[in-house]
């Protein structure tokens, strides 16, 4: 995974609450068996009409957000299905950062496995970011979001921060503990299935 340091970009305001992963990536695209190319299907049913033509008032179809890497949205983003395809789609489309007051647990966890920084921040900050047209800078090392006029810090646990900053694969990390896993297996009382 590539390492994540800073992202500077305009924000895409996505002013909806409880956005579920069925909307982020509808089920017909879950039949694909690879991780790549999901960006074109992102928010498919909200982005395109019946004839697969872009719906003009949908935010991703507004040219001014074309190169935005920062997605700002409302509470409980990514609720519902565990499909990691939702993160693959957002990342492949070009987003590197998602900012919201809260995220669904599985979605939040999936973000960090794919080099996506998910930032939980108070609603009043989200309100401000939603209305910004100028660029902002998200700095993971210093845990800050800088706008033209102010700097806000955000919280993130040190493990997730390290994974992103160093572009680590957590399987490699886990392999350091193989002896501990083997020890656990010796003492567990739960038998095999087969």
């Amino acid at each position: 995974m590539e390492s994540f340091k800073k992202v500077k970009s305009t924000v895409t305001p996505f002013d909806r609450v409880n956005v579920d992963t069925d909307q982020i990536i509808p089920k017909q695209f879950l039949k694909l068996i690879h991780k790549i190319g999901f960006g074109k299907f992102l928010f498919f049913n909200w982005r395109y009409d019946k004839n697969e033509q872009p719906i003009s008032n949908f935010v991703l179809n507004d040219k001014k957000y074309n190169n935005s890497k920062i997605f700002v949205t409302r509470d409980n983003f990514g609720c519902g299905s565990s499909r990691e395809h939702a993160v693959w789609a957002l990342k492949d489309y070009g987003f590197d950062v998602i900012i919201a007051p809260s995220f669904a647990d599985i979605f939040y966890s999936n973000c960090f496995k794919n080099g996506m920084l998910a930032i939980k921040i108070e609603s009043k900050i989200v309100n401000k970011l939603m209305n910004l047209t100028s660029e902002i800078e998200v700095d993971l090392e210093n845990q800050t979001i800088k706008t033209k006029t102010e700097t806000t810090s955000f919280q993130i646990d040190s493990y997730k921060k390290k994974i992103l900053l160093e572009g680590l694969d957590d399987i490699t990390l886990t392999f350091q503990y193989l002896d501990k896993i083997a020890d656990f297996e010796k003492k567990t009382i739960i038998p095999s299935v087969l």
Partner: peptide, 20 residues
């Protein structure tokens, strides 16, 4: 509990998961 595909891979190779 439900997990994403990266975690499926992690469990397949290690039978463990990192969890907050």
């Amino acid at each position: 509990f439900g997990i994403g595909t990266s975690d499926i891979e992690h469990v397949l190779v290690s039978q463990t998961l990192w969890l907050e």
